[in-house]
């Protein structure tokens, strides 16, 4: 039984000119408990739309989304979110105060929540930055804070929207390794959105490839059976890369042609 399932979901946006645009339509997807699912697709295909609906920030226009057999009706702390940019951090709170925000909302006693927040800051490698404000931190550090803030709240599932897209290649590679080891330890269910094939093959247990929008769907799912540390020079790694690349190539071309 899947933890999350999308059944025949549609999301239609109305533009300011009053024109309807269906980002996804007849969209089906199942995510199993404990898996690391990567959702890959060309820019503008509707990846963030899917995440926003699952998070409960936006309601589907048709169809239903179930988690634990219950329809998703709004945001909840079951589903922790790491956002695409850094605008979700609270600039008036220090790193550790940002991380303990969820615990504070649940009225966890001060010393207890501080201890747990520091523990998770340590987990993401920011133990020394606890008292800095977000404006004093680098892009990579801010994404780690977002990750720690979501993890400390112990969600059933983690939704990550291109969390490393804005980072430089070296930092991104480092963050991927760290995320992989954090996931190995925690085994939370993850929906990880990316447009980077390499990142998807590095992290994903399964990779869902989306079609170009409008009316996007999951074109196919690739199961990745690579164990332990994944190396980009490994033959199997390259085979998966190629398989995914061939699935997405036409979609990217279509996407570019349509938005031209």
């Amino acid at each position: 039984m899947a933890l999350v399932s999308f059944h025949d979901v549609r999301k239609t946006y109305r533009s300011l000119q009053g024109v309807d645009y269906s980002a996804v339509e007849h969209f089906d997807l199942e995510i199993e408990a404990g898996e690391f699912f990567c959702l890959l697709g060309p820019s503008g295909c509707g990846k963030t739309t899917v995440l926003k609906m699952l998070a409960g920030f936006e309601a589907p226009s048709a169809g239903e989304i179930l988690m634990d057999d219950r329809p998703v009706t709004g945001a909840s702390r079951d589903r922790g979110v790491v956002f695409q940019g850094d605008d979700s951090l609270y600039g008036w709170l220090t790193a550790v105060e940002n991380v303990e925000f969820g615990l504070r909302m649940r009225r966890v006693p001060r010393s207890e929540r501080r201890r747990r927040a520091l523990e998770f800051l340590d987990l993401v490698g920011l133990a020394g930055q606890a008292d800095k404000y977000p404006s004093e931190l680098s892009g990579g550090m801010k994404q780690r804070i977002q990750l720690a803030r979501a993890l400390v709240n112990e969600p059933k599932m983690l939704l990550m929207d291109e969390p490393f897209a804005a980072l430089d290649a070296q930092t991104r590679a480092l963050m991927q390794v760290e995320l992989a080891s954090i996931w190995q330890a925690a085994r939370t269910t993850v929906l990880f959105i990316t447009h980077d094939i390499d990142e998807a093959v590095t992290l994903g247990g399964r990779i869902g490839v989306m079609r170009a929008g409008p009316r996007s769907q999951v074109k196919g799912v690739v199961e990745v059976s690579l164990n332990g540390a994944r190396s980009r020079t490994d033959d199997t790694f390259l085979r998966y890369y190629k398989q995914v690349y061939e699935m997405i190539r036409d979609e990217v071309a279509t996407s570019i042609a349509r938005s031209a």
């Binding site: 920030f57 589903r79 979110v81 940019g85 979700s88 504070r104």
Partner: peptide, 24 residues
């Protein structure tokens, strides 16, 4: 996204008002 993050962290509407909207 500041509001959404608070929602996903389990904050109530009143908490969002006091702890996000006001300081922001």
């Amino acid at each position: 996204n500041k509001i959404r993050a608070a929602e996903a962290l389990g904050a109530s509407r009143a908490q969002i008002f006091c702890h996000v909207a006001l300081p922001a």
